[in-house]
Design a binder for these strands. Structure first.
Lengths: 177, 177
DNA sequence: TGGTCCATGTAAAACGTTACATGATTCC
DNA sequence: GGAATCATGTAACGTTTTACATGGACCA
């Protein structure tokens, strides 16, 4: 339902190509929304059919031609309409929890290996977020209004990863006896 | 990929009907896996074709007949194989984060309403988890091995909801000026 | 008389993943 | 010479969501 809206949101800042959009989705946006380039191209085509975006062909020398997409007035209207809708809490589908839930079937060793791997990933994310925080957000008041909003999404990452790490520690202690 | 494995996991404790399975998925399992009854019925049929579950027709008086599914030996083997596979960190798709990220487009009021609603939901979950913790898990050592594993998944819920609530508070303070 | 629970499904649409496909340039 | 980056897509498949459909029992 809302990769399309994510695309509109990104394009509301500046026009981009499908390629750049899919890079964004693999970049800063990835921590709360992800999609492959195929999805981006398909939804971009759908959005254009709906009149929410339009593109200009840009011929480049020494590089392949590209299509630069921008949001239309109808697209901005749709984006704002969607933004004012109440949001749903995202559904979780965490297969590791099912494995843990039924942990007695396989025992601690196999789960411990899996858990340590997950812990490492959460540690890496935590470090990444902390780095971004240091770089861009030191005096919160000095940030522009736009940046303050973005900073709040970074805080989400930091607080959640902290909780994940605390949980991983508890489970590790339990599994390691 | 793994509603099927979740079904096998639930059936590994006791045989159930498709209806009961979909109730479980809407119940205790819902916090880390969810699915509709349609999905459950379809995957049950697939699992039976693969030989991982089998059913018995049970004729009931005064109630519609039902099919009681149980896991087969091949199903148990498949479940354990899957449980030993490394797990992937689940993908997040949180539309509220996109709305916040682009918050300057709609302003604080509309987001605040949305946020307060989400905070309420997190509070409710937190309370539910705490209640379950009080009821079943007081002296951790007194729990059976199976229950200790399940308790760990409950801890996940408690720690994550705590982080969510802390974050909601930060954002509320920010948005309310 | 209307709503909820039990119990089972079909069908279609929307969304997501994986594989295949092409072709130029730039960097090592 | 090979890998990575820019740039765009098609096709098939898998999963999830939403809508439609039925019918009896029980409760207020």
């Amino acid at each position: 339902m809302s990769l399309k809206h994510s695309i509109l949101a990104i394009l509301s800042s500046e026009p981009k190509t499908g390629y750049q959009l899919s890079k964004d989705v693999e970049g800063s946006i990835r921590f709360f929304w992800q999609a492959t380039h195929q999805q981006v191209y398909r939804d971009l085509a759908d959005l254009e059919r709906s009149g929410f975006v339009k593109h200009k062909e840009v011929t480049q020398e020494e590089k392949p031609d590209k299509k630069v997409y921008s949001i239309t007035k109808a697209g901005t209207k749709e984006l704002i309409r969607w933004m004012k809708e109440p949001s749903e809490i995202p559904a979780t589908r965490d297969s590791f929890m099912i494995k843990l839930f039924m942990g007695h079937l396989v025992g601690a060793e196999s789960l411990l290996k899996d858990l340590r791997n997950q812990k490492q990933i959460h540690e890496n994310r935590q470090n990444l977020y902390r780095q971004i925080e240091k770089k861009y957000a030191h005096p919160f008041e000095s940030l522009s209004a736009d940046q303050q909003y973005m900073y709040m999404t970074l805080r989400r990452g930091i607080l959640l990863e902290q909780a994940w790490l605390a949980w991983c520690q508890e489970v590790e202690d339990f599994l390691a006896d």
